[in-house]
């Protein structure tokens, strides 16, 4: 279908790619974002030497991956999928089914997880026709339908149905941890790329105004679908890594709505449309959750709820926007 006069990713006319790279590195914000990504990978790569609770680190990374996925979907294209966890679960089950039923190795299993979530995203791509809140709730319905599908006894031959998944055949704490770090690295790099590439500009253009974007020569449907698929792939990769780390789980665990909710709040709190926002949002809120949420959860949910209200009303662009304005004032 792709005509030869069309490409997905726009090119700079008459610029050699080498110049392009130099140009990127002259861009201070690109260097900053790339540095954030590298520091992040470094922290988690050596994380296990200062934090023995590796699962805490894994959860932190998984939420960062999901928050970045929300960032791509909502921050760059304006679609907020409440059912984002559907892709996470699809990735987890892609990993589980491919390794335990089809006996592929763990790494092909991770790929299978991503592929499954991408396929689900493509099947659901007609939802992108829906506007704002319709889309948000429709995606939620899709995720709920998916978990019922996975746990239905007639799917038992493939998914093991309600009995849940068991990946003990490929269980490997070390390798699954490292894979999660690599996954976080890939996801963060993808967001850095999105933010600084013409493709990212095109996404933001579509978000700002569809018809102007179309008149600028952007294939709105294709670009948007591609972004949706990237976002789903991120969640799928996160889900596959999580499945590998945790190894024994029930359908409800990997399709839990709370996961979507957390990822959305983390991303919004930190600031969407940025690289650093979802990371900071996850660290701060998941940190608070672990520190106080566990002892007084019902108050924590109350605080969470009120926090959302405050964010929406007073800092709709998240912590990153606050940080940017403070930083801006200081440097002036």
């Amino acid at each position: 279908m792709l005509r030869d006069d069309e490409t997905l990713v726009g090119e700079i006319p008459g610029t050699a790619s080498k110049d392009r790279v130099t140009q990127l590195f002259r861009n201070r914000s690109f260097v900053g974002d790339a540095a954030v990504a590298l520091v992040l990978i470094g922290v988690f790569a050596f994380g296990r030497s200062f934090e023995a609770n590796t699962l805490l680190l894994v959860n932190l990374m998984v939420y960062m991956i999901l928050a970045q996925g929300i960032n791509v979907s909502y921050g760059f294209t304006g679609y907020l999928p409440f059912g984002f966890v559907g892709f996470f679960g699809a990735g987890a089950y892609g990993m589980a089914v491919s390794t335990s039923k089809f006996h592929v190795g763990a790494y092909p299993g991770l790929v299978a997880g991503v592929v499954v979530s991408v396929v689900v995203a493509l099947i659901l791509s007609p939802l992108l026709r829906l506007r704002g809140s319709y889309f948000a709730i429709a995606s939620l319905a899709a995720a709920e339908a998916l978990v019922l599908l996975v746990s239905n006894p007639s799917a038992q031959g493939i998914t093991n149905g309600a009995y849940g998944a068991n990946l003990s055949s490929v269980f490997n704490p070390g390798a699954s941890y490292v894979s999660t770090v690599v996954a976080l690295g890939l996801v963060t790099a993808a967001v850095v790329w999105l933010k600084h590439s013409p493709f990212g500009l095109a996404l933001r253009a579509i978000k700002a105004d569809r018809s102007s974007a179309a008149m600028s020569g952007i294939n709105v449907v294709r670009v948007r679908t591609f972004a949706w698929v990237i976002s789903a792939a991120m969640a799928g990769l996160g889900g596959a890594c999580y499945a590998w780390v945790i190894s024994v789980f029930y359908p409800g665990d990997v399709f839990s709505l709370t996961t979507s909710v957390f990822a959305i709040i983390f991303a919004l709190f930190g600031g969407i449309g940025t690289v650093v926002g979802p990371i900071v949002g996850t660290v701060v809120l998941y940190g608070i959750y672990n520190a106080i949420g566990i002892t007084v959860p019902q108050y924590f949910q109350l605080i969470y709820g009120l926090l959302i209200v405050v964010i929406v009303l007073f800092v709709p662009r998240g912590l990153a926007s606050l940080g940017a304005s403070v930083f801006g004032r200081m440097s002036r």
Binding site: G10, P13, P198, R204, A205, A208, M215, G217, I218
Partner: peptide, 29 residues
């Protein structure tokens, strides 16, 4: 191509980026 009665710039993008997007995706060279 066209202009709009009520201009519809890509908010959040700089003026240069607005034009860059169209230059890159519009194949105007």
């Amino acid at each position: 191509n066209r202009t709009f009665q009520i201009p519809k710039p890509f908010t959040g993008l700089t003026v240069r980026q607005n034009v860059e997007v169209a230059a890159r995706y519009g194949k105007g060279r």
